[in-house]
Design a protein around this nucleic acid. Structure first.
Lengths: 206, 206
DNA sequence: CTTCGTGCTGTATAAAAATACACAATTATG
DNA sequence: CATAATTGTGTATTTTTATACAGCACGAAG
């Protein structure tokens, strides 16, 4: 698949969103209006180029005969993140296991990404090794006591139950074999990577 | 939403599948060819009727300007079944809690319906009260020992781990507070309602 | 400097598609 | 039975839409 110029990427993106919103591919004239072209041929040549580079297919002699090569349903869904190295950003390319076709709105406040669970520290909350958590990440979010969160203590990512008493934060496991993580906010670096809003267990781990 | 005649339903169904397959609504001429009309007007009047009865919307002056009123993504997804009364068929309308926008293929052999779990008998397998199971129902399916199944013993629906030794079938809970169900195939009526292929936990039960 | 690819303008034109009008056979439905 | 709704045929006509051809400006590459 050939690389796109910025302009071509812009046009492809517009076609994509337009198709998702209207579930109807645009005509040359509609593209022309959207990008303020003064000639339908500008649209035509762009479409030809996008087709030649393999991003879409043109059915000739057909009104609105544009078919995106990437599956639109694949574009939706959520990224699945595997084991995240300490200190690295959650959604960095290298930690992505893939993309799952899950509707973000299924998890009611809405999910932003999926995280695969490692270990059994939350066993008694019904969260097992290999399970996939749906996580919502909101800037400046403050968890309620008792809520399950994805947190990062000194760079290390962990899933625990949140408890804060005055300035003392504890991250509680749900398994007697594990000990709570007591966070000293003056010494430790604590970041909240999101609240757990759902759980998914598929295939193998059942 | 007015009721459709059989012919109208047939035409609507064709439009639906056509749109799912091609992600492009049909023209009058295409409808005409598909149904062997000899006049595009036959297609036109049917579309008008379907629009008038509220099943779709026609954007006039627009090529392929057909927009289905039902969300195509809603048509997909799986039915969620709640508590099923003894002896009643699983997918009877009255037990449906709704439809969740979940891709059946997400659960690898493929799921046929969703079932809400009641009770804690499978707690130690990480299946909690209120969880939603993705279930695959295949005719003539024989479970492997150790597999989690949805079974029906004398009409009563239950989720348990399957174990068969010769002619003796046991349905094992995953919680020491519960006892195994020993099934006597000569006296008890045992039906397998499917194998559990996935689990979903959303919102409230977390 | 010349040539190529990109990103357009401007003008035409043929094909595709929507849509109107007139009329007929069949099937409900009061 | 009479009437309306459904399900069509057949023919036209206007819009939409795709698409060809002739150029122009600009930056990158050889």
């Amino acid at each position: 698949m050939d690389k796109l110029t910025p302009r071509q990427a812009e046009i492809l993106a517009w076609i994509r969103t337009r198709m998702l919103e209207d579930s109807l591919p645009p005509t040359r004239a509609e593209l022309m209006k959207a990008f303020d072209f003064r000639s339908p041929n500008a649209a035509e040549t762009h479409l030809r180029m996008l087709a030649r580079k393999g991003y879409l297919e043109l059915q000739n002699g057909t009104a609105r005969g544009i078919r995106l090569h990437e599956d639109l349903s694949e574009t939706m869904g959520l990224p699945l993140v595997g084991r995240v190295a300490a200190g690295q950003p959650m959604l960095a390319e290298e930690f992505r296991e893939g993309q799952l076709p899950v509707d973000p709105k299924l998890f009611s406040p809405g999910a932003d990404y999926l995280l695969r669970v490692q270990g059994m520290s939350m066993r008694d909350a019904g969260i097992l090794d290999g399970d996939i958590l749906a996580v919502r990440h909101e800037a400046g979010f403050t968890p309620q006591n008792g809520q399950i969160v994805v947190a990062r203590v000194n760079g290390e990512v962990t899933v625990k139950r949140w408890q804060r008493k005055q300035s003392k934060v504890s991250l509680l496991p749900e398994n007697p074999d594990f000990s709570p993580i007591e966070v000293d906010l003056s010494r430790d670096d604590l970041q909240i990577e999101g609240q757990v809003v759902g759980l998914l267990r598929i295939g193998n781990s059942l």
